[in-house]
Amino acid sequence: MTNLLVIAEHDHATLKAATLNTVTAARNIGGEIHLLVAGNHCAGAATASAKIPGIAKVLQVDADHYARHLAEDLAVLIAGLAKDYSHVLAPATTFGKNLMPRVAALLDVTQLSDIVGVENADTFVRPIYAGSMLATVRCSAPVTVITVRGTAFAAAASEGGAAPIETVPAAPPLGVTRFVGQELTTSERPELTAARIVVSGGRGMGSGEGFKLLEDIADKIGAAVGASRAAVDAGFVPNDYQIGQTGKIVAPELYIAVGISGAIQHLAGMKDSKIIVAINKDEEAPIFQIADYGLVGDLFKVLPELSAELDKLPPA
């Protein structure tokens, strides 16, 4: 019998979208699924979790020392609960990537990172070498600890279920780490990993000012704005814009890459997008090899034209 524990990523009040993709991966493995919501005053997130169809039980844990989701403290809690489960899963976000190896080590088991496919309860597919290769691996650990790549699994429904919520006691704090502060990027635009359309800029944007042209386009089509590593390293935009192997993985319906040459590390973060558009003045740029629509031209001329064309477009 498989019993699966999914670790919810949340802000105490609401669930983060990646949790729903992780639930789908758990369903593909099969078995009874419990969802752990650990935080402080996280009844809101627990209630939202209970509405996901197919969840057998929600475990809610509230404690001061879970308020900031510190991996050091959460790992002790999860490792304690994990003995009752065959699988423990979390989203492969910076939250899950920080936390789950720590959980696995406390359980003395290996961990599977960033799975993109479930073959059966012990065999999984995961990308290696920046996604240029897919490895099928079998895990023989007594508890299988997994992080799930959200873009590889559809989001589970967020309404329709009515799972019971059980309160679970907190584990003691480890007390080695103290939260100091957070500097979050605020934006009116959709969240990058959940957006239906992503407009992304590279070194070719030339400056943070160049990105204003992209933001103008993004706002006309309801898109999120992303960037290549080169654009982030150049200081045009903050780190959380980065799409690629070491940044965010996105797979929107439409991805518009502007002034991005298409290094493999960038492609790793976006090549599963449904439709890819590339705008670049270098017609030899590798990005054109994977683009459905390529437009060779100077982006500082093309973007204003694109903006004007979008203005002319009648409502869909």
């Binding site: 510190l70 939250f95 103290r178 939260f179 502060g181 957070q182 500097e183 979050l184 990993t193 780190n239």
Partner: peptide, 10 residues
């Protein structure tokens, strides 16, 4: 570096 921006811990 976290998904939403930056976090500082001691």
């Amino acid at each position: 570096e976290i998904d939403g921006g930056l976090e500082t811990v001691a």
